[in-house]
Design a protein around this nucleic acid. Sequence first.
DNA 1: CCTTAAACGGACGATATCGTCCGACTAAGA
DNA 2: TCTTAGTCGGACGATATCGTCCGTTTAAGG
Lengths: 208, 208
Amino acid sequence: MIGAVTENQDKVVRRRGPRKDAADNRDRVLAAAAVAVRRDGTAVPMATIAADAGVGVGTVYRHYPSRDALLGALTHRSFQLVLETARRAAALDGPPLEGIRFFLERTIEHGSDLVLPMHGGPAPSDQATVALRDEAHRTLGSILERGQDDGTIRDDVTRADIVSFGALLAQGLPHAPDWTATARRQADIYLDGLHPARRGKPTGGRSR
Amino acid sequence: MIGAVTENQDKVVRRRGPRKDAADNRDRVLAAAAVAVRRDGTAVPMATIAADAGVGVGTVYRHYPSRDALLGALTHRSFQLVLETARRAAALDGPPLEGIRFFLERTIEHGSDLVLPMHGGPAPSDQATVALRDEAHRTLGSILERGQDDGTIRDDVTRADIVSFGALLAQGLPHAPDWTATARRQADIYLDGLHPARRGKPTGGRSR
DNA sequence: CCTTAAACGGACGATATCGTCCGACTAAGA
DNA sequence: TCTTAGTCGGACGATATCGTCCGTTTAAGG
Protein backbone atom coordinates (compact mmCIF):
# COMPACT_ATOMS: atom_id res chain seq x y z
CA MET A 1 0.00 0.00 0.00
CA ILE A 2 3.01 2.19 0.16
CA GLY A 3 5.18 2.25 -2.93
CA ALA A 4 2.76 0.85 -5.53
CA VAL A 5 0.81 4.00 -6.06
CA THR A 6 2.48 5.80 -8.93
CA GLU A 7 3.02 2.96 -11.34
CA ASN A 8 -0.56 2.45 -12.65
CA GLN A 9 -1.30 6.09 -13.28
CA ASP A 10 -1.90 5.34 -16.96
CA LYS A 11 -4.22 2.45 -16.20
CA VAL A 12 -6.79 4.98 -15.05
CA VAL A 13 -10.11 4.40 -16.73
CA ARG A 14 -10.71 6.96 -19.42
CA ARG A 15 -14.37 7.61 -19.97
CA ARG A 16 -15.37 9.00 -23.34
CA GLY A 17 -18.59 10.82 -22.84
CA PRO A 18 -20.77 11.55 -19.85
CA ARG A 19 -22.52 8.66 -18.19
CA LYS A 20 -25.87 7.77 -19.64
CA ASP A 21 -27.87 8.50 -16.52
CA ALA A 22 -26.12 11.84 -16.18
CA ALA A 23 -26.96 12.85 -19.72
CA ASP A 24 -30.55 11.77 -19.26
CA ASN A 25 -30.95 13.71 -16.08
CA ARG A 26 -29.41 16.76 -17.64
CA ASP A 27 -32.02 16.72 -20.37
CA ARG A 28 -34.87 16.03 -18.01
CA VAL A 29 -33.88 18.93 -15.81
CA LEU A 30 -33.74 21.32 -18.74
CA ALA A 31 -37.11 20.14 -20.03
CA ALA A 32 -38.72 20.41 -16.61
CA ALA A 33 -37.21 23.85 -16.13
CA ALA A 34 -38.66 25.07 -19.42
CA VAL A 35 -42.15 24.06 -18.40
CA ALA A 36 -41.79 25.27 -14.83
CA VAL A 37 -40.41 28.66 -15.82
CA ARG A 38 -43.22 29.23 -18.27
CA ARG A 39 -45.74 28.22 -15.66
CA ASP A 40 -44.37 29.91 -12.55
CA GLY A 41 -41.92 32.49 -13.82
CA THR A 42 -38.14 32.67 -13.49
CA ALA A 43 -38.35 32.72 -9.70
CA VAL A 44 -39.73 29.20 -9.57
CA PRO A 45 -38.04 27.30 -6.69
CA MET A 46 -35.27 25.00 -7.77
CA ALA A 47 -36.87 22.29 -5.65
CA THR A 48 -39.95 22.47 -7.88
CA ILE A 49 -37.89 22.00 -11.00
CA ALA A 50 -36.04 19.12 -9.38
CA ALA A 51 -39.28 17.43 -8.32
CA ASP A 52 -40.83 17.89 -11.76
CA ALA A 53 -37.75 16.34 -13.33
CA GLY A 54 -37.83 13.49 -10.84
CA VAL A 55 -34.37 14.18 -9.43
CA GLY A 56 -32.94 15.71 -6.29
CA VAL A 57 -31.90 19.32 -5.97
CA GLY A 58 -28.30 18.23 -5.78
CA THR A 59 -28.54 16.90 -9.30
CA VAL A 60 -29.95 20.13 -10.60
CA TYR A 61 -27.13 22.13 -9.04
CA ARG A 62 -24.47 19.76 -10.33
CA HIS A 63 -25.56 20.19 -13.93
CA TYR A 64 -26.35 23.87 -13.62
CA PRO A 65 -24.34 25.47 -10.81
CA SER A 66 -26.68 28.39 -10.35
CA ARG A 67 -30.11 29.59 -11.30
CA ASP A 68 -28.57 31.90 -13.85
CA ALA A 69 -26.71 29.03 -15.43
CA LEU A 70 -29.94 27.11 -15.78
CA LEU A 71 -31.80 30.07 -17.23
CA GLY A 72 -28.88 30.71 -19.52
CA ALA A 73 -29.05 27.15 -20.79
CA LEU A 74 -32.76 27.55 -21.42
CA THR A 75 -32.12 30.71 -23.38
CA HIS A 76 -29.41 29.04 -25.38
CA ARG A 77 -31.66 26.15 -26.28
CA SER A 78 -34.45 28.53 -27.26
CA PHE A 79 -32.22 30.39 -29.65
CA GLN A 80 -31.03 27.14 -31.13
CA LEU A 81 -34.63 26.34 -31.97
CA VAL A 82 -35.22 29.83 -33.32
CA LEU A 83 -32.17 29.68 -35.54
CA GLU A 84 -33.08 26.28 -36.85
CA THR A 85 -36.58 27.48 -37.66
CA ALA A 86 -35.27 30.60 -39.34
CA ARG A 87 -32.94 28.54 -41.52
CA ARG A 88 -35.72 26.25 -42.62
CA ALA A 89 -37.83 29.26 -43.42
CA ALA A 90 -35.03 30.78 -45.47
CA ALA A 91 -34.60 27.58 -47.42
CA LEU A 92 -38.17 27.59 -48.69
CA ASP A 93 -38.82 28.30 -52.33
CA GLY A 94 -42.07 30.30 -52.26
CA PRO A 95 -42.59 34.01 -51.82
CA PRO A 96 -40.66 35.56 -48.93
CA LEU A 97 -43.84 36.35 -47.07
CA GLU A 98 -44.57 32.65 -46.93
CA GLY A 99 -41.16 32.12 -45.39
CA ILE A 100 -42.04 34.55 -42.67
CA ARG A 101 -45.38 32.86 -42.22
CA PHE A 102 -43.62 29.54 -41.83
CA PHE A 103 -41.31 31.03 -39.25
CA LEU A 104 -44.11 32.54 -37.20
CA GLU A 105 -46.26 29.43 -37.31
CA ARG A 106 -43.39 27.25 -36.23
CA THR A 107 -42.59 29.65 -33.44
CA ILE A 108 -46.15 29.41 -32.20
CA GLU A 109 -46.04 25.64 -32.34
CA HIS A 110 -42.81 25.46 -30.39
CA GLY A 111 -44.76 27.09 -27.63
CA SER A 112 -43.48 26.03 -24.28
CA ASP A 113 -40.09 24.99 -25.62
CA LEU A 114 -39.28 28.59 -26.23
CA VAL A 115 -38.30 30.18 -23.00
CA LEU A 116 -36.74 33.21 -24.50
CA PRO A 117 -35.14 35.98 -22.50
CA MET A 118 -38.67 37.21 -22.00
CA HIS A 119 -40.43 36.22 -18.81
CA GLY A 120 -38.19 38.52 -16.86
CA GLY A 121 -35.12 36.47 -17.57
CA PRO A 122 -31.82 38.10 -18.38
CA ALA A 123 -30.83 38.97 -21.91
CA PRO A 124 -28.28 36.47 -23.26
CA SER A 125 -24.90 37.23 -21.78
CA ASP A 126 -22.66 34.42 -23.01
CA GLN A 127 -21.05 34.80 -26.36
CA ALA A 128 -22.34 31.56 -27.85
CA THR A 129 -25.97 32.51 -27.31
CA VAL A 130 -25.45 36.00 -28.66
CA ALA A 131 -23.94 34.45 -31.77
CA LEU A 132 -26.99 32.24 -32.22
CA ARG A 133 -29.29 35.17 -31.82
CA ASP A 134 -27.39 37.34 -34.27
CA GLU A 135 -27.29 34.57 -36.83
CA ALA A 136 -31.02 34.06 -36.47
CA HIS A 137 -31.58 37.77 -36.98
CA ARG A 138 -29.43 37.77 -40.08
CA THR A 139 -31.22 34.78 -41.50
CA LEU A 140 -34.62 36.33 -41.00
CA GLY A 141 -33.27 39.57 -42.36
CA SER A 142 -32.30 37.87 -45.59
CA ILE A 143 -35.84 36.64 -46.12
CA LEU A 144 -37.18 40.08 -45.39
CA GLU A 145 -34.85 41.78 -47.82
CA ARG A 146 -35.81 39.39 -50.55
CA GLY A 147 -39.42 40.39 -50.02
CA GLN A 148 -38.63 44.06 -49.98
CA ASP A 149 -36.49 43.80 -53.10
CA ASP A 150 -39.22 42.15 -55.10
CA GLY A 151 -41.82 44.55 -53.72
CA THR A 152 -43.98 42.05 -51.87
CA ILE A 153 -43.17 43.33 -48.38
CA ARG A 154 -43.46 46.91 -47.19
CA ASP A 155 -40.17 48.75 -46.97
CA ASP A 156 -40.36 50.22 -43.49
CA VAL A 157 -40.32 46.88 -41.71
CA THR A 158 -37.05 45.82 -40.10
CA ARG A 159 -35.75 42.42 -39.14
CA ALA A 160 -36.07 43.51 -35.53
CA ASP A 161 -39.80 43.98 -36.05
CA ILE A 162 -40.23 40.41 -37.22
CA VAL A 163 -38.15 39.13 -34.34
CA SER A 164 -40.12 41.19 -31.85
CA PHE A 165 -43.42 39.96 -33.16
CA GLY A 166 -42.22 36.39 -33.03
CA ALA A 167 -41.08 36.93 -29.48
CA LEU A 168 -44.48 38.33 -28.55
CA LEU A 169 -46.21 35.29 -29.98
CA ALA A 170 -43.80 32.93 -28.25
CA GLN A 171 -44.24 34.75 -24.98
CA GLY A 172 -48.00 34.73 -25.24
CA LEU A 173 -50.50 35.86 -22.67
CA PRO A 174 -50.19 33.74 -19.53
CA HIS A 175 -53.89 33.46 -18.84
CA ALA A 176 -55.25 33.17 -22.34
CA PRO A 177 -57.39 30.03 -22.61
CA ASP A 178 -56.22 28.89 -26.05
CA TRP A 179 -53.21 30.91 -26.95
CA THR A 180 -52.14 28.83 -29.91
CA ALA A 181 -55.35 29.55 -31.78
CA THR A 182 -55.27 33.22 -30.87
CA ALA A 183 -51.65 33.54 -31.85
CA ARG A 184 -52.35 32.02 -35.24
CA ARG A 185 -55.00 34.60 -35.96
CA GLN A 186 -52.76 37.41 -34.76
CA ALA A 187 -50.06 36.18 -37.09
CA ASP A 188 -52.47 36.01 -40.01
CA ILE A 189 -53.51 39.61 -39.51
CA TYR A 190 -49.93 40.74 -39.05
CA LEU A 191 -48.79 38.97 -42.20
CA ASP A 192 -51.52 40.72 -44.14
CA GLY A 193 -50.18 43.95 -42.79
CA LEU A 194 -46.75 43.18 -44.14
CA HIS A 195 -47.93 43.70 -47.72
CA PRO A 196 -46.89 47.03 -49.18
CA ALA A 197 -49.35 49.79 -48.30
CA ARG A 198 -52.18 50.02 -50.75
CA ARG A 199 -52.68 53.42 -52.26
CA GLY A 200 -56.13 54.81 -52.96
CA LYS A 201 -58.14 52.32 -50.98
CA PRO A 202 -61.53 53.50 -49.76
CA THR A 203 -60.63 52.70 -46.17
CA GLY A 204 -60.30 56.30 -45.13
CA GLY A 205 -57.65 58.69 -43.99
CA ARG A 206 -54.54 57.04 -42.70
CA SER A 207 -52.83 60.39 -43.01
CA ARG A 208 -49.44 59.83 -41.40
CA MET B 1 -68.45 64.50 35.79
CA ILE B 2 -70.56 61.67 36.97
CA GLY B 3 -73.84 61.45 35.17
CA ALA B 4 -72.77 63.30 32.07
CA VAL B 5 -71.37 60.37 30.21
CA THR B 6 -74.17 59.02 28.13
CA GLU B 7 -75.52 62.28 26.86
CA ASN B 8 -72.73 63.09 24.35
CA GLN B 9 -72.73 59.77 22.60
CA ASP B 10 -73.79 61.48 19.42
CA LYS B 11 -71.02 64.03 19.76
CA VAL B 12 -68.58 61.39 18.60
CA VAL B 13 -66.40 62.78 15.83
CA ARG B 14 -67.61 61.63 12.45
CA ARG B 15 -64.89 61.69 9.84
CA ARG B 16 -66.01 62.04 6.27
CA GLY B 17 -63.29 60.62 4.09
CA PRO B 18 -59.94 59.02 4.79
CA ARG B 19 -57.20 61.14 6.21
CA LYS B 20 -55.13 63.02 3.68
CA ASP B 21 -51.85 61.29 4.47
CA ALA B 22 -53.55 57.91 4.33
CA ALA B 23 -55.01 58.61 0.90
CA ASP B 24 -51.65 59.86 -0.33
CA ASN B 25 -49.81 56.82 0.89
CA ARG B 26 -52.40 54.55 -0.65
CA ASP B 27 -51.82 56.10 -4.04
CA ARG B 28 -48.07 56.09 -3.71
CA VAL B 29 -48.06 52.43 -2.80
CA LEU B 30 -50.19 51.53 -5.79
CA ALA B 31 -48.01 53.57 -8.13
CA ALA B 32 -44.81 52.09 -6.74
CA ALA B 33 -46.27 48.61 -6.99
CA ALA B 34 -47.14 49.11 -10.65
CA VAL B 35 -43.58 50.05 -11.49
CA ALA B 36 -42.03 47.39 -9.28
CA VAL B 37 -44.23 44.60 -10.63
CA ARG B 38 -43.41 45.52 -14.19
CA ARG B 39 -39.73 45.63 -13.35
CA ASP B 40 -39.34 42.60 -11.09
CA GLY B 41 -42.45 40.51 -11.69
CA THR B 42 -45.34 39.71 -9.39
CA ALA B 43 -43.06 38.07 -6.84
CA VAL B 44 -41.33 41.35 -6.06
CA PRO B 45 -40.79 41.60 -2.28
CA MET B 46 -43.31 43.74 -0.47
CA ALA B 47 -40.42 45.46 1.25
CA THR B 48 -39.19 46.67 -2.13
CA ILE B 49 -42.54 48.16 -2.98
CA ALA B 50 -42.70 49.80 0.43
CA ALA B 51 -39.23 51.28 0.04
CA ASP B 52 -39.98 52.55 -3.46
CA ALA B 53 -43.13 54.20 -2.17
CA GLY B 54 -41.23 55.68 0.75
CA VAL B 55 -43.35 54.01 3.41
CA GLY B 56 -42.97 51.11 5.82
CA VAL B 57 -44.17 47.61 5.08
CA GLY B 58 -46.85 48.02 7.74
CA THR B 59 -48.44 50.75 5.68
CA VAL B 60 -48.51 48.60 2.59
CA TYR B 61 -50.21 45.77 4.45
CA ARG B 62 -52.76 48.07 6.05
CA HIS B 63 -53.96 49.39 2.72
CA TYR B 64 -53.67 46.06 0.94
CA PRO B 65 -53.97 43.17 3.40
CA SER B 66 -52.23 40.66 1.16
CA ARG B 67 -50.17 40.46 -1.97
CA ASP B 68 -53.20 39.28 -3.85
CA ALA B 69 -55.19 42.28 -2.68
CA LEU B 70 -52.46 44.57 -3.98
CA LEU B 71 -52.22 42.79 -7.31
CA GLY B 72 -55.99 42.82 -7.53
CA ALA B 73 -56.03 46.57 -7.02
CA LEU B 74 -53.42 46.98 -9.74
CA THR B 75 -55.51 44.91 -12.11
CA HIS B 76 -58.60 46.88 -11.27
CA ARG B 77 -56.86 50.15 -11.96
CA SER B 78 -55.48 48.83 -15.23
CA PHE B 79 -58.90 47.87 -16.46
CA GLN B 80 -60.23 51.26 -15.45
CA LEU B 81 -57.67 52.83 -17.74
CA VAL B 82 -58.44 50.37 -20.50
CA LEU B 83 -62.16 51.01 -20.30
CA GLU B 84 -61.67 54.75 -20.28
CA THR B 85 -59.46 54.53 -23.35
CA ALA B 86 -61.92 52.25 -25.12
CA ARG B 87 -64.75 54.70 -24.47
CA ARG B 88 -62.78 57.59 -25.84
CA ALA B 89 -61.95 55.53 -28.89
CA ALA B 90 -65.59 54.65 -29.40
CA ALA B 91 -66.59 58.29 -29.15
CA LEU B 92 -64.41 59.33 -32.08
CA ASP B 93 -66.04 60.33 -35.33
CA GLY B 94 -63.65 58.98 -37.96
CA PRO B 95 -63.49 55.53 -39.54
CA PRO B 96 -63.66 52.64 -37.06
CA LEU B 97 -60.12 51.61 -37.87
CA GLU B 98 -58.94 54.96 -36.62
CA GLY B 99 -60.76 54.30 -33.39
CA ILE B 100 -58.85 51.09 -32.98
CA ARG B 101 -55.66 52.88 -33.85
CA PHE B 102 -56.40 55.42 -31.16
CA PHE B 103 -57.01 52.68 -28.66
CA LEU B 104 -53.79 50.84 -29.43
CA GLU B 105 -51.66 53.98 -29.40
CA ARG B 106 -53.09 55.07 -26.10
CA THR B 107 -52.50 51.63 -24.70
CA ILE B 108 -48.87 51.79 -25.73
CA GLU B 109 -48.51 55.22 -24.16
CA HIS B 110 -50.01 54.10 -20.89
CA GLY B 111 -47.11 51.74 -20.74
CA SER B 112 -46.09 51.03 -17.21
CA ASP B 113 -49.44 52.08 -15.78
CA LEU B 114 -50.97 49.00 -17.30
CA VAL B 115 -50.20 46.06 -15.14
CA LEU B 116 -52.76 43.78 -16.63
CA PRO B 117 -53.37 40.23 -15.47
CA MET B 118 -50.39 39.39 -17.61
CA HIS B 119 -47.02 39.15 -15.93
CA GLY B 120 -48.09 35.94 -14.28
CA GLY B 121 -50.65 37.66 -12.16
CA PRO B 122 -54.02 36.12 -11.52
CA ALA B 123 -56.94 36.70 -13.83
CA PRO B 124 -59.39 39.16 -12.28
CA SER B 125 -61.43 37.42 -9.63
CA ASP B 126 -63.53 40.14 -8.07
CA GLN B 127 -66.78 41.01 -9.69
CA ALA B 128 -66.11 44.71 -10.10
CA THR B 129 -62.98 44.14 -12.17
CA VAL B 130 -64.66 41.52 -14.31
CA ALA B 131 -67.42 44.02 -15.00
CA LEU B 132 -64.85 46.61 -16.09
CA ARG B 133 -63.19 44.10 -18.36
CA ASP B 134 -66.42 42.98 -19.95
CA GLU B 135 -67.56 46.53 -20.53
CA ALA B 136 -64.22 47.35 -22.16
CA HIS B 137 -64.59 44.31 -24.41
CA ARG B 138 -68.10 45.34 -25.38
CA THR B 139 -67.00 48.87 -26.13
CA LEU B 140 -64.18 47.74 -28.36
CA GLY B 141 -66.51 45.22 -29.93
CA SER B 142 -68.89 47.99 -30.94
CA ILE B 143 -66.12 49.80 -32.80
CA LEU B 144 -65.09 46.60 -34.50
CA GLU B 145 -68.62 45.79 -35.61
CA ARG B 146 -69.04 49.21 -37.09
CA GLY B 147 -65.96 48.61 -39.18
CA GLN B 148 -67.08 45.18 -40.24
CA ASP B 149 -70.55 46.45 -41.13
CA ASP B 150 -69.23 49.15 -43.40
CA GLY B 151 -66.69 46.78 -44.90
CA THR B 152 -63.53 48.54 -43.76
CA ILE B 153 -62.40 45.80 -41.38
CA ARG B 154 -62.00 42.13 -42.22
CA ASP B 155 -64.79 39.93 -40.96
CA ASP B 156 -62.88 37.18 -39.21
CA VAL B 157 -61.44 39.40 -36.52
CA THR B 158 -63.02 39.21 -33.10
CA ARG B 159 -63.05 41.66 -30.25
CA ALA B 160 -60.92 39.19 -28.34
CA ASP B 161 -58.26 39.52 -31.02
CA ILE B 162 -58.07 43.27 -30.58
CA VAL B 163 -57.94 42.90 -26.83
CA SER B 164 -55.22 40.28 -27.04
CA PHE B 165 -53.12 42.39 -29.32
CA GLY B 166 -53.53 45.37 -27.04
CA ALA B 167 -52.52 43.21 -24.11
CA LEU B 168 -49.42 42.05 -25.97
CA LEU B 169 -48.39 45.61 -26.67
CA ALA B 170 -49.04 46.65 -23.09
CA GLN B 171 -47.10 43.69 -21.82
CA GLY B 172 -44.19 44.36 -24.12
CA LEU B 173 -40.86 42.59 -24.19
CA PRO B 174 -39.06 43.11 -20.88
CA HIS B 175 -35.63 43.57 -22.37
CA ALA B 176 -36.45 45.53 -25.49
CA PRO B 177 -34.42 48.74 -25.57
CA ASP B 178 -37.14 51.07 -26.86
CA TRP B 179 -40.38 49.22 -26.66
CA THR B 180 -42.63 52.19 -27.26
CA ALA B 181 -41.19 52.80 -30.71
CA THR B 182 -41.25 49.12 -31.58
CA ALA B 183 -44.79 48.74 -30.35
CA ARG B 184 -45.92 51.64 -32.49
CA ARG B 185 -44.54 50.02 -35.60
CA GLN B 186 -46.08 46.67 -34.69
CA ALA B 187 -49.42 48.38 -34.28
CA ASP B 188 -49.08 50.11 -37.62
CA ILE B 189 -48.48 46.83 -39.38
CA TYR B 190 -51.29 45.12 -37.52
CA LEU B 191 -53.74 47.87 -38.35
CA ASP B 192 -52.85 47.50 -42.00
CA GLY B 193 -53.63 43.84 -41.65
CA LEU B 194 -57.07 44.64 -40.34
CA HIS B 195 -58.21 45.85 -43.75
CA PRO B 196 -60.34 43.35 -45.62
CA ALA B 197 -58.24 40.81 -47.48
CA ARG B 198 -57.29 41.92 -50.95
CA ARG B 199 -58.19 39.47 -53.65
CA GLY B 200 -55.94 38.80 -56.60
CA LYS B 201 -52.74 40.26 -55.22
CA PRO B 202 -49.52 38.85 -56.64
CA THR B 203 -48.23 37.85 -53.25
CA GLY B 204 -48.71 34.17 -53.79
CA GLY B 205 -50.64 31.32 -52.34
CA ARG B 206 -52.22 32.00 -49.03
CA SER B 207 -54.21 28.84 -49.56
CA ARG B 208 -55.95 28.24 -46.26
C1' DC C 1 -17.87 -10.24 -11.35
C1' DC C 2 -15.03 -6.43 -9.66
C1' DT C 3 -13.44 -1.93 -9.34
C1' DT C 4 -13.76 2.81 -9.38
C1' DA C 5 -14.81 7.24 -10.92
C1' DA C 6 -18.79 9.55 -11.27
C1' DA C 7 -23.49 10.68 -10.27
C1' DC C 8 -27.36 10.59 -7.12
C1' DG C 9 -30.41 12.90 -3.75
C1' DG C 10 -31.77 14.79 0.34
C1' DA C 11 -30.42 16.76 4.96
C1' DC C 12 -28.72 21.00 6.58
C1' DG C 13 -27.24 25.71 8.09
C1' DA C 14 -27.62 30.30 6.06
C1' DT C 15 -30.35 33.70 4.19
C1' DA C 16 -34.50 36.06 2.49
C1' DT C 17 -39.23 37.17 2.66
C1' DC C 18 -43.56 37.02 4.86
C1' DG C 19 -47.30 39.16 7.43
C1' DT C 20 -48.25 40.74 12.29
C1' DC C 21 -48.06 43.63 16.10
C1' DC C 22 -47.61 47.66 18.81
C1' DG C 23 -45.60 52.03 20.59
C1' DA C 24 -44.98 56.61 18.49
C1' DC C 25 -46.95 60.08 15.77
C1' DT C 26 -50.21 63.18 13.30
C1' DA C 27 -54.27 65.10 10.90
C1' DA C 28 -58.20 67.44 11.82
C1' DG C 29 -62.56 68.53 14.40
C1' DA C 30 -63.97 70.99 18.71
C1' DT D 1 -54.76 74.53 21.69
C1' DC D 2 -56.49 70.09 22.94
C1' DT D 3 -58.13 65.54 22.05
C1' DT D 4 -58.34 61.32 19.86
C1' DA D 5 -59.27 58.19 16.21
C1' DG D 6 -56.63 56.75 12.79
C1' DT D 7 -52.17 56.18 10.63
C1' DC D 8 -47.22 55.29 10.49
C1' DG D 9 -43.22 52.22 10.17
C1' DG D 10 -40.04 48.95 11.52
C1' DA D 11 -38.83 45.07 14.76
C1' DC D 12 -39.92 40.37 15.11
C1' DG D 13 -40.93 35.30 15.01
C1' DA D 14 -42.43 32.09 11.45
C1' DT D 15 -41.78 30.19 7.14
C1' DA D 16 -39.72 29.35 2.57
C1' DT D 17 -35.92 28.96 -0.46
C1' DC D 18 -31.11 28.80 -1.31
C1' DG D 19 -26.92 26.34 -2.50
C1' DT D 20 -23.60 23.02 -0.26
C1' DC D 21 -21.97 18.85 1.43
C1' DC D 22 -21.38 14.05 1.85
C1' DG D 23 -22.72 9.13 2.49
C1' DT D 24 -24.88 5.97 -0.80
C1' DT D 25 -25.73 4.11 -5.31
C1' DT D 26 -24.68 3.13 -10.11
C1' DA D 27 -22.81 2.87 -14.84
C1' DA D 28 -19.47 0.80 -17.38
C1' DG D 29 -14.52 -0.66 -18.51
C1' DG D 30 -11.51 -4.64 -17.40
